[in-house]
């Protein structure tokens, strides 16, 4: 029996915090955001691959990207198209601004309800926050079971999805009924590369906001726009109670941000004496390099 699955992949555009080298820190020790490119969150890429593999196995299945962010996050949907996704939605609204993980999950869960998928696949966590909270919170809001840290979605057993999980000290294979939320671990296979044919076609995909931005898109032929529109959904499109969105829906607040000041570049020479080593370790603690 061939089953057609509707799969939503949750993906986030994030600053590339992995490549924070010495030049990514300003003189005053703050993060130089300009030096960090906006990228497709790495584990969300692993999640996309798992979705595309399901589509390979169950022809006729549909893979949709869902991302929440500012208008420029439409790039995530295009990147999904380039690698074989069938479409996507950009959740964007000023009312979403200032959302912590709980308010983010609320917005995503409302959009997912509107789509009505069989499977929701997300990266385990995003590299800008490393919280790993959004997947389970979305699952709870939808009242779906969750399977976290997936390394391989092995397939369907009857109506149930079989998933191999990567735990701290081992692996576990579980079987979950659908619909379910699966979060994918970095040890899962890398995403396939962009496909040249998809790239040529979908580089013209635009949101309405991007189309209005003439400076950016004026070279586009008018015809190419109509069927390559990336939908933008706001609070009005997904419904729900406004109090749960954005800042008002976020129980956690940032009280303080401390920038970690990286050391100057000249080498400091130390001896192997306990005093020297102890003062170094103390310094590493106070700069939160170790903890």
């Amino acid at each position: 029996m061939t089953k057609k699955l509707k799969i939503v992949v949750l993906a986030k555009q994030v600053p590339d915090t992995r490549n924070v080298g010495k030049n990514a820190m300003k003189e005053d020790g703050t993060v130089n955001r300009a030096a960090l490119p906006a990228i497709f969150n790495p584990e969300d890429m692993n999640a996309l691959e798992q979705a595309l593999r399901l589509k390979d196995r169950f022809p006729g299945s549909e893979v949709l990207l869902l991302t929440m962010g500012p208008p420029r996050a439409a790039e995530i949907i295009r990147e999904g198209y380039y690698r074989g996704a069938d479409g996507g939605v950009l959740l964007t609204d000023r009312k979403f601004a200032g959302a912590d993980t709980l308010a983010t999950s609320y917005a995503l869960s409302m959009a997912i309800k509107k789509i009505g998928p069989d499977i929701v696949i997300a990266g385990r966590q995003a590299i800008d926050g490393d919280t790993a909270q959004v997947g389970p919170q979305v699952a709870e809001k939808l009242n779906y079971p969750q399977v976290t840290y997936a390394e391989d979605i092995t397939g369907l057993d009857g109506e149930k999805l079989v998933v191999k999980r990567r735990l701290e000290r081992g692996v576990e294979t579980v079987k979950t009924p659908l619909p379910a939320v699966i979060t994918v671990h970095a040890t899962a296979p890398d995403c396939r590369p962009r496909h040249a044919k998809h790239l040529m076609k979908y580089k013209h995909a635009r949101t309405f906001t991007e189309e209005q931005d003439n400076e950016h898109n004026s070279y586009l032929p008018i015809e190419a726009k109509a069927n390559l529109r990336i939908p933008e959904w706001g609070v009005a499109d997904v419904g729900g109670d406004e109090i749960h969105y954005g800042l008002s829906g976020s129980p956690t607040k940032v009280k303080k941000i401390e920038n970690i000041v990286h050391q100057a570049k000249e080498s400091k020479i130390l001896t192997s004496s306990f005093e020297d080593i102890d003062s170094l370790i103390k310094e590493l603690f106070s700069s939160h390099t170790i903890g």
Partner: peptide, 17 residues
């Protein structure tokens, strides 16, 4: 907690809930 790839240390509070 550290955030932003370990480049900042954030103090988070939960005032009302």
């Amino acid at each position: 907690r550290p955030a932003f790839g370990g480049n900042i240390i954030a103090t988070i509070i939960n005032p009302d809930c």
